[in-house]
């Protein structure tokens, strides 16, 4: 497992994506799978950057491994917040009747196989996994 610790700020988004993508590339992860994981990582990281510590600042640890499946874990010491409790978006309604936000977490659930949240040692811990398909060691 590899990990990186960065300040929870939009300024670090590219570094976080670079870290995750570098790891996935190293493990011969296919472009479409990388794109799916990329999207999920950005959504979760931006949630933490925008909400976890505001108006103060803090750090987030991102861990990644690729054994039987790809596992990515985010840990922050910010306000207790379980993003998975967010209501699902109203996808059956026409555009004009929809809310414009709330799509990020829904997308993460669609993109990844499993997404789980726990609060442990005063930390928010969000873990997501994805089966490795078309995967070449």
């Amino acid at each position: 497992m590899r990990n990186v610790v960065v300040k929870a700020s939009v300024d670090n988004l590219d570094d976080v994506l670079g870290f995750v993508n570098g790891y996935l590339e190293l493990h011969n992860c296919q472009p479409y799978l990388r794109f799916q994981i990329d999207t999920a990582v950005e959504e979760i990281f931006m949630n933490i950057a925008n909400y976890a510590y505001k108006p103060a600042e803090g750090y987030v640890t991102i861990r990644i491994s690729a054994e039987e499946k790809i596992l990515i874990r985010f840990e922050d010491s910010g306000k207790p917040y379980n993003p998975l409790e967010q209501a699902s978006p109203d996808l059956d309604k026409p555009v004009m009747a929809r809310k414009i936000g709330g799509l990020g977490v829904f997308m993460v659930r669609q993109l990844m196989d499993e997404v789980a949240y726990t609060r442990a040692d005063n930390k928010n811990v969000l873990t997501m996994t994805k089966k490795i398909e078309n995967y070449v060691l």
Binding site: F35, T39, M46, V95, R98, I100, G101, L103, G104, M107
Partner: peptide, 11 residues
């Protein structure tokens, strides 16, 4: 690449 934030702006 299009994130949820981009979709939010488009909506």
């Amino acid at each position: 690449y299009l994130s949820s934030d981009g979709i939010r702006i488009i909506l």
